[in-house]
Design a protein around this nucleic acid. Sequence first.
RNA 1: GGCCCGUUGGUCAAGGGGUUAAGACGCUUCCCUUUCACGGAAGAAUCAGGGGUUCGAUUCCCCUACGGGCUACCA
Length: 515
Amino acid sequence: MTERKVRTRFAPSPTGPLHMGGVRTALYAYLFAKQKGGDFLLRIEDTDQTRFVPGAEEYIIESLNWCGIKIDEGVSVGGKFSPYRQSERKEMYRKYAEQLVQNGHAYYAFDTSQELDAIRKQAEAAKGAFSYDSSSRMKMNNSLTISAEATQQKISSGEHYVIRLKVPENTEIKFTDIIRGEVSFSSNIVDDKVLLKSDGMPTYHLAHIVDDCLMEITHAIRGEEWLPSAPAHILIYRFLGWEKLMPQYAHLPLLLKPDGNGKLSKRDGDKLGFPVFPLEWKDPKSGEVSSGYREKGYYPEAFVNMLSFLGWNPGTEQEVFTMDELIQKFSFEHVHKGGARFDPEKTKWFNEQWLHRQSETDLASRLKSSLTDQFHFEENDRRVSPGFLATCVQLLKVRTQFENEFIEKGIYLFVAPASYDEQAIQKKWKPELGIFFRQLSEAFSSLELFVATGIESCLKETATKNNLKPGDVLQLFRVFMSGQSAGVDLFPMCELLGKEEVIARINVALRSINE
RNA sequence: GGCCCGUUGGUCAAGGGGUUAAGACGCUUCCCUUUCACGGAAGAAUCAGGGGUUCGAUUCCCCUACGGGCUACCA
């Protein structure tokens, strides 16, 4: 066998937004190609004109882009096998379908959809199932049951027809799936699939084979839902004389819903309480908006990291992986065969891990822009100074899972509290503590250096002088500073706020309590 | 219904004839601590069931159950 350059493709149909299962398929195909120094292509399979959704293709490209999955060749970047949109390749497919007819491996069928529907309904009513296959094809309206002249006559008179694959009887079809190993099927269970539709468009079955072959794809990585039709695909390769060019198939396990019923699907949207789409999507028809991981504040790295672990693992204990590490470590041998149930909690955990890995300067600069948007701070306001923001970020990042929670969770770092946690005050406040806090604010004002350690010992000394334990006043002090009974480290926070602000907040709080 | 593919804690999963059956998320407890977190320590929790094969099966085989997929001129 000649060594071919590894080429994988992701070939979605633009029928709506790409959901996370699709992204995972793309990811695995990408990781594998990159690991082998190969190419990753994007092909758009838009052969079903009735299901075309405007904007879907752009969405797919933007999603891959957001995830850091780079397209080497295909729609949006071009390449030597252009075009990469199947609708633009329409004429190419007919030739191969006709070739199969010539070779006796396919035939023209004139049965209308209505007729077939009726037969299926009848069969169903009789508790059977109709399959257009070797057992039934000779009773149908096709070029096998009428003369060549009659067939020609029908075609030239413009009658609609499809081209169907003529699946042989009693043949065992074997192939090796990269994930499942040797798989074998009896040809009797595969039906005479339509290859070319009456509108002249190919079906997926024909189109993906022609394209994979022409585009020199070496590994066809797709979802498990394709496994039952794989034997038909093997047959098509064989009948086209392309068996040697056939890519190796890898059928990936499906992503299941967390509640355990069925595979994750596009329609789930936000019904399950978490996004199923990488990016927010607005349905062009209904206007309905489905949330996306990006808009929810997930890092693309976290999203990709999480997806990579749904069905694959490195065999080691490492869980946090960059794209480059994934490229290095990915292997089909460690891809599970069973479907993976998606866990939204673990996804949050991955985001937290990635938040902890963000550089403080990056976090600070992003925090600055959201702060500026929200509060319109002046450029010279110390609250948007690099030093101030760096400390904020240090204090906040260990207690959030999402960067976009910084302001909400740390609001008191930027704006003095407008109200105080009632319960905490009630629990701890005694009127005689007023003396202590006044003393504290005096003690603070005489501190030369207003730094965390000094603030802490100053507070403790003042407490001792008043026969108080730190525990009697710390919680109150925190509430005075932040309005809340829980939050970032208290003394570093005071240092950050600065002497004047701290004293001011004590005074405001005392006044508010005495009212 | 038929066919196909699966099945290790609640979830993601390692392991693959002999193991105390890893690890992570989540949960519980404890430590750190003024708080909430982070971090650290510990704990509860798994080989779907039944038959074989074998000295020995979670691991191999069969059956059953369960889950999922497919069964379109959709992909």
